[in-house]
């Protein structure tokens, strides 16, 4: 086979595993168009082109082009983009680089684990540097100010519906008619314990995930990777279903778990559950 023929020849057949990783990534980027609707047609074309029987997904340039299309959006419309959109773009670039390597998995595994590890490490640094977070104010505010936490406010903190309604109204008043004035509120008796537990759990599980993924493969801490990331995912994304992060983390976790099929299947099943949760949330069923 001539050199030119080799360049034009189709890549070797991808495994089901590789195809699943790439389709999951394309699906995440489709979700991310919620932050930039102008990207919707592009993301739809991309996911179709990424699907069998087409073989474009095996091409490095395809992922690089996919990432390049997103770059103007994340720079110009940065105010509409959340962190996970950027992570999706970095991951597409990682796939492009991985496909340039004769050995796709070792290369892509390395990039996936460093991206996951750094994402959590940065998140932990921000939280530890924040007096609001360490002191519990962030979660105490979220228990009322973010309706995704209301189940926790009621069930775990022991807040009655009446107390929650009154606290929600107090928050609205503090930002409306009573600007600059203290507006007291009262939550359930276990609020302090719940806020403390949520704060501590978040710091522990995020730190564990960062350390486990940044640790070299031969380090014993590396064995914690699936448990740490799964613990974070299941304790976070049923409550706060963010598809852009949850499916992406499960995808990257599955790549890092290669070639352990059992762990990969658990990641895949978790990703499916988180995707369902996110869809139900969008449909206001959940």
């Amino acid at each position: 086979m001539s050199e030119v023929d080799q360049r034009l020849a189709p890549a070797t057949s991808p495994s089901v595993e590789q195809t699943a990783v790439m389709l999951a990534t394309a699906y995440v980027m489709l979700w991310n168009t919620g932050h930039a609707m102008a990207m919707l047609p592009v993301a739809m074309v991309f996911i179709v082109a990424c699907s069998p029987p087409f073989t474009l997904r095996q091409r490095s340039w395809f992922w690089l082009a996919g990432a390049a299309v997103w770059v103007p959006a994340v720079i110009i419309a940065w105010d509409r983009m959340e962190d996970h959109v950027y992570l999706g773009v970095y991951w597409m670039i990682a796939l492009a680089i991985g496909l340039r390597d004769p050995e796709f998995w070792p290369s892509t595994r390395f990039m996936a684990r460093v991206l996951v590890g750094l994402t959590f490490a940065v998140a932990v640094v921000w939280k530890l540097a924040s007096a609001d977070f360490v002191g519990g104010d962030t979660f105490e505010w979220l228990l009322v100010g973010d309706d995704r936490f209301h189940a926790v406010t009621r069930l775990l903190a022991g807040t009655s519906d009446g107390q929650l309604d009154a606290a929600t109204e107090a928050l609205r008043t503090a930002a409306g008619d009573a600007v600059g004035q203290r507006v007291p509120y009262q939550l359930g008796q276990r609020t302090g314990v719940v806020v403390g537990a949520m704060t501590a759990w978040t710091l522990v599980v995020e730190t564990a995930t960062a350390v486990a993924f940044l640790a070299p493969d031969r380090n014993r801490l590396a064995r914690l990777r699936p448990a740490a990331l799964m613990a974070f995912g299941w304790s976070t994304y049923l409550l706060v279903p963010v598809a852009g992060f949850s499916i992406l983390f499960m995808t990257m976790g599955a790549v890092v778990a290669h070639p352990n099929r059992r762990v990969q299947l658990i990641y895949a099943a978790s990703g499916v559950v988180f995707a369902i949760a996110a869809n139900l949330r969008v449909l206001e069923i959940y």
């Binding site: 940065w78 540097a129 609001d132 962030t138």
Partner: peptide, 18 residues
């Protein structure tokens, strides 16, 4: 958080929503 690539999710009370 809520805009941009800081990865500071839920870190600070003073953010876009408050």
């Amino acid at each position: 958080w809520g805009a941009g690539p800081a990865f500071a999710m839920f870190a600070q009370l003073d953010h876009f929503s408050t």
